[in-house]
Design a protein around this nucleic acid. Structure first.
Lengths: 334, 334
DNA sequence: GCCCCTCTTTGGACCGTTCCAGAACCTGTC
DNA sequence: GACAGGTTCTGGAACGGTCCAAAGAGGGGC
């Protein structure tokens, strides 16, 4: 009572298993009536090809592993969408693994994917173990998507252009007439890039001495605390650029609690265009990271490496766009 | 230059491939020095078992497929966590597939999982095609988790107890002194259950004629619109129970826009205890669905069916808990 | 020294595919 | 009718593991 195999189909159709294989792989070297007979038999038996057997024989799985650092981060869903659209068009499947879920187990979260012999690997977000990744990259194409960490050689990299994004925000605020502008910074490569770009842009506009930076931990609570410190300063900034949306929401609470109206008394900008920023109750001005494009480009890199393995690691930065919503307004002389 | 196989390990260790297999599967019928030699050879070669070959031979994959209806829904992360903890303890892996991503392709989103011959299937959220699921259930254990749809025979079901959750909310509000209580209803089995239970609880407290129901579409926008209708009524309710957090956020916007203070003028309650409800800026009173327990129980059902296949479909309802936060308050005589 | 028994180890079949070399079958030509 | 050449079909060898029956090794008792 086990699932039917190619032999069962062959027997039923009165042909050899090789012919069944031929038909099922879409060969045109088969007489139409035989093809029909095979397809009918397969349909009647409810035949499904066994992926394990196929990939064992073909020496490839037609599957790409996607290693997510944390399913709770919503921003990567667009990325997955872009990734999937291109991969699927090339007959490839995605296998998702969550690093956070498997962390406790003490194993490398990529292990199950590697045992399954995926044809390539997309690491989404901060990578778990750079050294291990280098070893993996020697055996199969690897792309790091959505993070700006340094990567081992031979690994491609796709991410949003954080310098450009931070510049967009800063110039938006300057364009609205703001001069005392603060940045609620974060950590990691991304936090660093956004902060640097904020500072550089302020400098370019001769506002270096009006730029203020407070550092948070990229959580709402951290954003709240940093914003309280910031907004209690005697030279209170009139605009705040937060390293991400969640920090920005913390800042929003702080502003509200201090009796400041957003955006009339203080403008706020987030980053990532998360679903939270789109809540009409918050309606944050923010930066969209072009997740879909990041995903598509990651797929592109992978497909390229399938065709021509090896070579230098490439980098692509997707251009972010500013989403102006309700938390920014022109500077009102107090 | 292909990955090493069990034969390579055998050769290097100077033993037969059968012995290598024995060692790697942890048999105690092996002399310690041979075991050491094999393990050393495996380590030196960087050997990884080939999952395809193994599952082909073993006739099982040690893998459970998890079909998510939409990665954007954050509520299932806890569920996955609970699921994973038990499965992992039994040496099983999870394979994630997203129905939404694969929908466009026109195939059944479970197809890749079935081709991979997963040992069992967990469907999280609303199921795609009940008929197809019945056919699958005949071949392998299937559990529906986190949804209350009717299921084909032989399928187990785990979900939060929506009746109990809605009752908790309603009694909480009544306990605070509210009498004119409204429900922002949703759709689907879950929407139905929560609404019915709200109505029943109101009736039990002799408040049937004070209960109001407006229906939304379970989005923020829908919640907003329904709440506007509701709060503009001459007999404006003093408390609103929304079918989910996102609807509740819409209601929050509506209240604010109408100049009503939450919770002093109107109390609001959501459902699902999403990360959104935990934002201090919103701080919604809501219901926690015990996602972790749902996940663990789903794993339990699956494991049971591995041991004793067949039998009736069972149902388990996890007990939800009320999370009282900032949007509910005792009724203030206006 | 031989036999028996237990503990280790091994060769080979098998899992369900793909792939390849060659067999079988046509069709047309001389 | 033999032959060439193309098209269509087939058997068997992979692929990398597991599993099982049986072989080999070692020890104890006679």
């Amino acid at each position: 009572m086990r699932p039917p195999t190619i032999r069962d189909v062959a027997e039923r159709a009165g042909v050899s298993k090789s012919l069944v294989s031929l038909v099922l792989r879409g060969s045109d070297q088969v007489r139409p009536e035989k093809r029909e007979a095979v397809l009918r038999a397969a349909r009647e038996l409810g035949y499904r090809p066994n992926a394990a057997a196929r990939s064992l024989s073909e020496q490839r799985t037609r599957t790409v592993g996607v290693l997510l650092n944390d399913l709770r981060n919503p921003w990567f869903v667009d990325l997955l969408d872009g990734l999937n659209s291109l991969l699927h068009a090339h007959g490839l499947h995605m296998l998702l693994a969550d690093a956070r879920l498997n962390r406790r187990t003490g194993q490398d979260p990529a292990d199950p994917l590697l045992d399954l012999r995926v044809d390539g690997l997309v690491v989404v977000g901060t990578l778990p173990d750079p050294a291990a990744l280098g070893a993996v990259a020697a055996r199969m194409p690897v792309v790091l998507a959505g993070a700006r960490e340094p990567v081992p050689p031979g690994v491609d990299q796709v991410a949003g252009d954080d310098e450009k994004g931070a510049r967009l925000v800063t110039e938006h605020l300057i364009g609205l007439g703001h001069r005392r502008i603060a940045h609620l910074a974060g950590y990691g490569a991304v936090g660093e890039l956004r902060r640097r770009s904020f500072e550089a842009t302020m400098r370019e506009h001769g506002l270096a001495d009006r730029a203020v930076v407070e550092t948070g931990d990229m959580t709402e609570e951290g954003g709240y605390r940093a914003a309280v410190r910031l907004l209690n300063r005697p030279d209170r900034p009139t605009a705040v650029f937060a390293v991400n949306d969640i920090t920005c929401v913390g800042a929003l609470s702080a502003a509200e609690e201090l009796g400041l109206r957003v955006p009339h008394d203080v403008s706020l900008v987030g980053y990532d265009n998360t679903s939270i920023s789109r809540l009409r109750h918050l309606w944050l001005t923010t930066v969209d990271n072009a997740g879909h494009e990041v995903g598509r480009r990651a797929a592109r890199f992978l497909l390229d490496r399938f065709e021509r393995p090896g070579g230098e690691g490439r980098v692509h930065l997707a251009t972010p766009t500013l989403e102006v919503r309700g938390t920014t307004f022109r500077f009102q002389r107090g």
